[in-house]
Amino acid sequence: MIDQNKESNNQDNLVFEVRDLAKIYKMGEVEVHALRGANLELFSKELIVLLGPSGSGKSTLLNILGGLDTATSGFVSYRGRNLTAATETELTEYRRFHVGFVFQFYNLIPSLTALENVAVVTEIARDPMKPEDALALVGLTERLDHFPAQLSGGEQQRVAIARAISKNPEVMLCDEPTGALDSQTGVVVLEALERVNRELGTATAIITHNVDIAAMADRVIHLSNGRISEVAVNKVRKSPSEIQW
């Protein structure tokens, strides 16, 4: 009975379900198997870290989860909706209302200020935060009217995080969010992500090849060669401030 409850509870909390996911790229004449049958779940409020060397397939996995790429075979569902069968329009709508992205190179709009970069998203979202509030969450209240060119890398990444959370997404997908930053700045960015996950309960997946970051996750998914090679559960999540690399 208890097990059943847990099962249904799990079902309610299930954000992503990934089954036998495979992706083959054609690079000219060569076929690259980026994913070879990955299986994975992500639950709400959970923070996971996807670890693996470059070419292990972690970015491909994240891109398919984010509706940026399509799978060659296999099945991905988001909250019970089949993403693998979704049309281009449905994927756009999915990204628009449900997913927050953070990328290694921030991908801010250079012609817009920090505030406006967040407003880009809140303007089209269903139930967004105020852009100022989102930027306050990442500690950028003082920098609202700065253009990307006037911000440091860490600040730019925090704007990107604010942009990602401002739509109150169900899930945050972060691809090497600290990849272009030094460790001190990286920690500040991770703290922002951790805080959002903790305070808003947004399910968060972080890609990294930095093993040290894994300590802040609930679960650590190891990828190698297009497959999930190991799933480790951290009994206790470390705070980013305790992490160093």
Binding site: G66, L68, T92, E93, Y94, R95, R96, F97, V99, F101, N107, L108, I109, P110, S111, V120, V121, I124, R163
Partner: peptide, 10 residues
Amino acid sequence: ELSSLRVLGY
């Protein structure tokens, strides 16, 4: 930046 906006759901 246009791709970025597409990613953001535009």
